[in-house]
Design a protein around this nucleic acid. Structure first.
Lengths: 357, 357
DNA sequence: TTGTAAGCGTTATCAA
DNA sequence: TTGATAACGCTTACAA
């Protein structure tokens, strides 16, 4: 189903290339060349053309250029369903800075809400309105038997690898970071851990949980000493996990969270219930969002290189966009870094703790 | 200066309308009509056409449609220089939901970074690639003697009125909200206030500060009892203000902040220095971002109806987009709401307080 | 170095 | 109800 186009009110007719050509006393081809290949035009001719352009306030009609050239210089960034604005804002900044420096415009589309959002994005790509795609989630939906990835335009996964072969990715070492989170707690003497998960089957969740499991196994910890609670990267799921935690006895003393928001929700909720952090419970977040410095206590976490992820993602995409042939598929690995702050401390002495409610 | 277009690699040639027409044994006009005006085509003809479309995986080329129809169904959202992702994310969601339901695609552009960002956005609009504009800041830069507002396309200010006559706006009652913030502190007995400002000359800052001044004057408070500290809606400016505050003696006991981030930065910094909140100092934020519930103490603030701002802004723009003639200019006023939480309490008894460092 | 002219893929007008 | 055809405004062979 296509919505009919409604022509917008034209006030004064916009200048066309032919107007400029007439004003400068040259052909339209010369105007076009003056703009795109300045050195293929005689100097004084170009001056006349430029003067006419600025006098008439001419801007080339983008639709006509796109149609003729078969390229739109637009890049679509696909956001996951549940996303954290504090986290992604910096990544997007990284994209935007690089892309706009190279003449590309960034379009943002999110996969949340109804299916028709995903449909519109897919159509946009197949309508040849998009030259390249950056995907911030591992999975892209298939609509009417085709997905954005089928359009055959350069596409790169950032923050998450795309769940289909043949695409480059820029990611961090999620698994190692989760190992670092977990080890940090072990090093502090914790032996009863809890894992606060992200959305099931998400790339990041899978890898982070894998790291958590490896680290606990390495430490010889029994599976049962490392409970996994569901979550979705929201404050709310941290609160829910905290409520579960408060009902436990004995309680775990170390919490590994798959993101900062949930960690902060958890932190606040248990603190309010009288549990002290880090004396009674230690918690490690993941992402390094700015809030982590402003909650109480400050949040120990994994700092992700957010702008660098954005910049590197843009760079990889630009290679695909500008090269004559498809560049080799590759995986760029950046590194997260453990940031020890106030929310983690030595495990409490092994005394049973049911200070409850 | 225009960047040359580089045609993207075509794998298999995309189906065109003529391919569909041939496959269905009709003319291209009939294919077009089947898509746009289904009821002007005989039922069985349309069925054949639709079958061919889905068999060939045909999607109309957007550039061609845009060129021919003179409308792009794209809406540009202009973000201010300094913006708060946690705040604007919900507003954007509000836009996106309404716009995409009406067949429009949203493009995001920010004014931060170098001038060339603003230039690209301006060109995009003059290139007739954009049907409508939503502006989240009062001021839009002029580049080469023209601004986005000069393009003559429907434009609406959201969260801030545009600093030029002739444009509709959807805003909240900033001034009244600031009065409510300030009164709340007076009601609690505070008489030495401090105002933590937003960026100079921003629409919101101007109105909020005006409300603050009015409320203090109404209360008969001396100008000197109400210091204004500069800020820019960031955590950092809250921290800076806190450092100034800590150096004061006696200190103000009530802080009115122009945004939540600064308030939280302030809160954290003074708390860490041993000042108790709300016993020694009360603070009121502005915006109602989610994190306000998770800092310690929770933040008293003004809750803005963010999604409603987005939805209303989209609605006003859509009127301009869909109507035959320009709708009347009007100002839609929504209301913020004081949310009393933990960061405000009765003014301390008037004893001098230099508990310092 | 410059100009001529043929498309790019649609949609809308007009005629059948 | 359908079809032929002329735009939409630009870029780019190719010719001069």
């Amino acid at each position: 189903m296509t919505v009919p186009l409604i022509a917008s009110r034209q006030n004064r007719r916009a200048a066309r290339i032919s107007d400029v050509a007439a004003a400068a006393g040259v052909s339209t081809a010369t105007v076009s060349r003056s703009l795109t290949f300045p050195d293929r035009v005689r100097h004084d001719t170009r001056e006349r053309v430029m003067e006419a352009i600025s006098r008439l306030g001419y801007t080339p009609n983008e639709a006509a250029r796109v149609l003729r050239a078969g390229a739109s210089r637009m890049v679509l960034v696909v956001m996951p369903q549940r996303y954290s604005p504090p986290f992604f804002a910096d990544v997007l900044d990284g994209f935007d800075a690089s892309l706009s420096a190279h003449g590309y415009t960034m379009i943002l589309g999110s996969l949340d809400g109804a299916e028709n959002k995903a449909r519109r994005l897919t159509e946009l790509v197949f309508a040849r309105q998009i030259d390249g795609v950056i995907i911030l989630t591992g999975h892209v939906p298939t609509i009417d038997g085709r997905s954005i990835l089928d359009a055959g335009i350069p596409s790169v996964g950032v923050c998450a690898e795309i769940d289909r072969a043949g695409f480059s990715a820029v990611v961090i070492d999620d698994e190692d970071c989760a190992i670092a989170q977990t080890r940090h707690l072990f090093d502090l003497g914790h032996s009863q851990l809890m894992y606060l998960a992200g959305p099931e089957n998400y790339y990041n969740e899978v890898h982070r949980y894998r790291g958590f499991v490896k680290a606990t196994q390495n430490a010889g910890l029994d599976e049962k000493m490392a409970l996994r609670l569901p979550g979705d990267y929201s404050f709310a799921s941290g609160v829910a996990a905290a409520q579960y935690f408060l009902g436990q006895s004995p309680r775990p003393t170390g919490i590994v969270s798959a993101c900062d928001e949930s960690a902060i929700g958890f932190l606040k909720t248990v603190t309010q219930a009288g549990v002290r952090c880090p004396e009674d419970v230690s918690i490690v977040g993941f992402d390094g969002i700015e809030f982590g410095e402003f909650c109480t206590p400050t949040l120990t976490t994994i700092r992700q290189p957010r702008r660098e992820l954005g910049a590197a993602g843009a760079r990889v995409l630009l290679e695909g966009l500008q090269g004559k042939s498809a560049p080799p598929v590759r995986r760029t690995l950046l590194h997260g870094e453990l940031l020890v702050r106030g929310s983690t401390g030595p495990a409490p002495k092994p005394r049973s703790r049911h200070l409850q409610d």
